[in-house]
Nucleic acid binder design. Structure first.
Lengths: 290, 290
DNA sequence: GATTGCCTGTGATAATTCTTTCACAATTGT
DNA sequence: ACAATTGTGAAAGAATTATCACAGGCAATC
């Protein structure tokens, strides 16, 4: 049994870089359900991590143990030690940091935002919005402002894979009126507007509405003026201990929407994804492992 | 394995009266160091409780298990259930929607990601990264890939307000080698790289490192290869019920970092913010109320 | 584009450890 | 003294673990 002042969890994380792909997969699996998974039989651990038995044996030795049971003994000892100590903590997210640390305070706030936002959301509207975004007959315009531009782009990036017939508009640029020339009845505008609300965005929304397009709005709890014009509005709470607002909750909503739209259009999407994969493979832009 | 809604600890205590002297002695020993002692070998448990091996075997059967390993399996399962904190599982986030609705499933996953990510973060490294990013002597390069580009841009946007002397680099473009010409010792690169890891990004990181610059990396649980070169790495869990990965957790970390850097540089920042406000006022780009 | 080397899984085997269960003796309490 | 409980020692059986050789696959390199 190897002596250690740190937890085995720490030790594994520290060694993570010296490990190979399968070993890392195993290590992460152990950390995933820690420490329970490491206390079962070796074969069970191997199969739950989807690696082979020798891989487990090899890694345990890399971690400095003479055998798997040796490793388990250390785990048990650690588990026993926890029992003694003050068990109080659980409230802090980053356990290693004090509760006043910005990481903990910020995370507290974001979780609170998420809870609050989700509690007030209307799933029917959500589903409705998903259907609108998934409808490939309608041209999809995605509009972001100065800060929200990044969220808009994130949506655009994913929608590009999922469906054709879409446009990314920056309300901060002067070129957006050109795009509106093409907008037709029933087209869909996904608009992001949080405080400080942008005049350009409002004008754009008004003109879109005038042309008979429908608007899906992502805004904050104070409601962008675009709200009046929107068919569906998503309201996120965005308060955090910072000079700025948080986009994390809006991001969550957005990703949920993407996931839902993806499911709705899966039949068509999967071919596009397939093609994309092949293109990536051929360009070698990405690496497959390690 | 016997079904139970209660913990095994409860069950043992409940049965305590039906047990004989040696068995009770064993039971109390198990509860003494719960659950670690029950997860070791039977013989070890027997000797630590100072009872004989058959006594252990007999009692386990009295508790309703078919075998000692069966008992252990139940213990491990219970241990695994504890690992999941109290906040996540029970609740439906969007109360109006059924728990199988994508909104609830997705939010569950994100909360889980956040919990897991924060649990493994090192606050010392975090603070260190904040100091590096806040140091205006060093030029700050922000690097994003295909998907992470949006996160990079989000950081860039905020850093622009907080400090001068920074550059936004897209690893997907071909122009980045030009930027590297200006990179100097101790400059800071904030690099985003999640799967699928981009070869361009790795090359960029290597060259930055060769020039003596320091790297702060935002990656996922599988660790971008850039990890080896980084002074500080932030590892987010990014699994959600979707064909894509979630950026929400990384966004949270990022915003925490921004907030912390903002605090560190407040003296200089507040003037810049003031100026920015005035510029916005004069351009009438934003509306002050509603 | 071919080669080389590293990593990983497979299947098998042997060694080890752990578990179960004997019968019987010792102990305890009634 | 009787009956229930418990421990001893042992041995068989089961499960787990350690390890091997080998082949396939992937990636880096030239």
């Amino acid at each position: 049994m190897a002596a250690a002042n740190q937890t085995i969890s720490d030790r594994i994380q520290q060694k993570l870089d010296d490990l190979t792909r399968a070993e890392r997969q195993l290590a992460l699996s152990i950390l995933e359900n820690y420490p329970a998974s490491g206390l079962g039989p070796l074969t069970a651990l191997a199969s739950s991590a989807k690696v082979s038995v020798p891989t487990v044996a090899r890694m345990v030795q890399k971690l400095g143990y003479t055998s798997y049971p040796d490793f388990q003994a250390d785990l048990r000892e650690e588990l026993g030690a926890i029992g003694k100590g003050p068990i109080a903590k659980q409230e802090t997210w980053a356990g290693a940091a004090p509760s006043e640390h910005i990481l903990n305070r910020f995370t507290d706030a974001v979780i609170d935002n998420i809870r609050n936002t989700l509690a007030h959301i209307d799933p029917v509207s959500f589903d409705e919005a998903c259907r609108m975004v998934a409808d490939q007959e309608r041209h999809l315009y995605i509009v972001g402002g100065r800060i929200t531009h990044t969220l808009a782009e994130y949506l655009f990036l994913h929608m590009q894979v999922i469906r054709p017939n879409l446009t990314h508009v920056q309300s901060t640029s002067n070129t957006w009126p050109h795009y509106l020339l093409n907008a037709r009845e029933k087209d869909v505008f996904v608009i992001f507007d949080v405080r400080r609300y942008e005049n350009n965005t409002l004008k754009l929304a008004e003109m879109a509405r005038a042309r008979g397009a429908e608007i899906i709005l992502f805004t904050d709890q104070w409601h962008s003026p675009v709200h009046q014009l929107a068919s569906v509005s998503f309201t996120s709470r965005i308060i955090v201990p910072s000079a700025w607002d948080s986009a994390a909750t809006t991001m969550l909503l957005l990703e949920s929407l993407i996931s839902a739209v993806q499911t709705l259009t899966w039949d068509e999407t999967k071919d596009r994804l397939q093609e994309l994969e092949e293109m990536f493979d051929s360009t070698k832009l990405f690496r497959k492992f390690t």
